[in-house]
């Protein structure tokens, strides 16, 4: 699931991972008003348990890409060596399958790796600019702080509610907080 690009958000950074996890937990179980998004400097396995964990489809894509690449590679060799250009070397079999194993394997791996990269890029949607990066608090999330962005589900939410939420997060142990409005 791709997070919506927030128009406004309450942003909080945490130094302590336990406080961060506790706060995140609160917002993923009660998500009627807020959509919680996290930015962390390293993968946090505890978030898998907290958020609705949906396994990535990438391993399955890679598996099928491997099967396709390997099959295609094998068939290509059979076609070339036994069908279009049969070469009789001392009466040895044209469909000499043991000799085709290495290239079959290599082409399976090559196809799987490239397909894996492409599917990852499609899911990442590379971009040159992110407006989140305008916030000095959020950019700490790629360095040494755990960052929580609370995006109001209702885009018309009043500023006073956002400010109240900011105070809540401060209370919960956030190191730095801000209300971010993007136009």
């Amino acid at each position: 699931m791709r997070a919506p690009i927030p128009g406004k958000a309450v942003v909080a950074s945490f130094k302590d991972v336990e406080q961060f996890e506790a706060v995140v937990k609160g917002y993923v179980t009660d998500n009627q008003h807020w959509s919680a998004q996290t930015v962390t400097p390293h993968p946090l396995e505890s978030l898998d348990a907290l958020t609705a964990y949906r396994p990535s489809p990438i391993p399955r894509i890679i598996f099928w890409a491997f099967i396709c690449g390997a099959t295609g590679g094998y068939l290509m060799q059979v076609y070339a060596m036994a069908i279009t250009y049969p070469l009789n070397v001392g009466g040895r079999p044209l469909h000499s399958w043991p000799a085709f194993i290495p290239i079959t394997f290599e082409l399976g791996v090559l196809t799987a790796a490239i397909t894996g990269l492409v599917s990852w890029l499609i899911r990442l949607r590379p971009r040159l600019y992110l407006r989140e990066l305008e916030s000095a608090i959020i950019t700490r999330g790629t360095q040494d702080r755990y960052v929580l962005m609370l995006v109001p589900i209702d885009p018309e939410m009043k500023a006073a509610d956002l400010i109240a939420k900011e105070a809540d997060l401060k209370q919960a142990g956030a190191e730095e907080t801000e209300v971010r409005l993007w136009d």
């Binding site: 997070a3 930015v39 978030l47 990535s56 990438i58 990852w120 989140e132």
Partner: peptide, 30 residues
Amino acid sequence: LGWLGRDQQWKDYRALYFMLAGLATPLVIS
């Protein structure tokens, strides 16, 4: 590539990283 470190980004990232490791292991032997 516009990486931020969102939860879902890390999940995809780790899935690909481990799969590539799984592919590279027999590859290096081969």
